[in-house]
Design a protein around this nucleic acid. Structure first.
Lengths: 203, 203
DNA sequence: GGCATAATAGAAACACGTTACAGTTACGAA
DNA sequence: TTCGTAACTGTAACGTGTTTCTATTATGCC
């Protein structure tokens, strides 16, 4: 290799490096899914991914980077599934609520993983801004697409208002998620709160 | 003393114990104000408060409890000051934006302290639900009062819709604050985002 | 193939939250 | 006052995120 490689993004590095990165993220997801944030221990990740601790830190400069990158990959993997089909529902509210209910249920189905990823997301500082921005864009895309429904056209920029609405919904969703993963709200309360907010913003 | 004492709440314990608790919280605020979350190190707090490390843990079972308790005391101290005067502004949006701008500016005036307290708040789990609920109620009261403006009547319950709106605004505010303390957004972006959200929700 | 350089392994060490514990002090009860 | 118990001190130790360092291995270039 002729240039120093940050290894931070998907498509860089040799095949062996891409495979190491994949193994590391696999191990991260597996450990998070089994025991949550605390179970994602750097030594354990390194061992399970079959890389040295120093190598792990070469790929991901902190536990937070690691978890947020894992979150981004999860979004990539499942976002593609959600992406194609039209969102059911006759109004923006119905469509957004449908999508969020699906997403929330998915996350609640793996509480430990959600706890790990959410905590990392909330603790991330400026050095993780790039990864966070990726997740934010994915969320915004998902929501603006749901708002437009059939009127959505591939590649078209969403309106400023739709983006603003999406950001508000994202904020509410994130707050609700934090309440839930920290045990301060039940799944039902989260669902109810989100639906109230969506109908409020999209009336 | 005849009974074991949790020391978790303000009015328990001897004078010497109340004084220790005060010194601990003073040291916490001072360290947080100087260097943020990372600077609030338990050994440093203990030393500055002139108590042993074990004693610090006897009073506050974790760093998070310590910081959230410090936040609660800050709210107690400053909350009374804000409470009485009517909120200026002719529309709900104007009043809410005024109040939030004031509060945000206050927090941004002590960035390190805000960072420390916000991080603790986001990391708090169910064991601090009581203190967190208190803060949430104070926020809701502040916002519903701002929405109603002159129409506000002491002791009257706010409408369900006003409460829902307040919760959405709280969520947006908290998310914005997290973005700011983690260095992912500037103060201007925070102000702009909040105002966009408020006008959206209160149209 | 042989060399220069980057990447990796492996292990030790450090930082800070947290726990454990032995000795000492404060304080109410008898 | 003396005693018994709980609180406090001081310190060591542990767990986990992070850093550092040396030896080894892989990789691109001639």
């Amino acid at each position: 290799m002729t240039t120093t490689n940050s290894l931070t993004y998907d498509d860089l590095g040799s095949a062996a490096q891409r495979d190491r990165r994949r193994r590391i993220l696999d191990a991260t997801i597996a450990l998070a899914s089994k025991g949550g944030f605390d179970a994602v221990q750097m030594r354990a990740v390194a061992e399970q991914a079959d890389v040295a601790l120093g190598t792990l830190y070469r790929y991901f400069p902190s536990k937070i980077h690691l978890l947020v990158s894992a979150l981004a990959r999860q979004f990539d993997d499942t976002g593609a599934v959600v992406g194609r089909r039209p969102v059911p529902g006759d109004t923006p509210s119905e469509r957004v609520i449908y999508v969020l209910r699906r997403a929330t249920r998915g996350m609640q189905g793996d509480a430990n993983l959600t706890e790990a990823l959410t905590r990392a997301f909330m603790f991330a500082d400026a050095s993780v801004a790039t990864e966070i921005h990726v997740v934010g864009m994915q969320l915004t895309t998902m929501l603006t697409r749901s708002i437009k429904g059939d009127a959505y056209v591939e590649g078209e920029q969403p309106s400023d208002e739709d983006v603003a609405i999406s950001r508000v919904i994202s904020d509410v969703w994130l707050s609700a998620l934090v309440s839930w993963v920290t045990g301060r709200a039940t799944a039902e309360e989260v669902a109810e709160h989100i639906e109230t907010a969506v109908t409020l913003v999209l009336r």
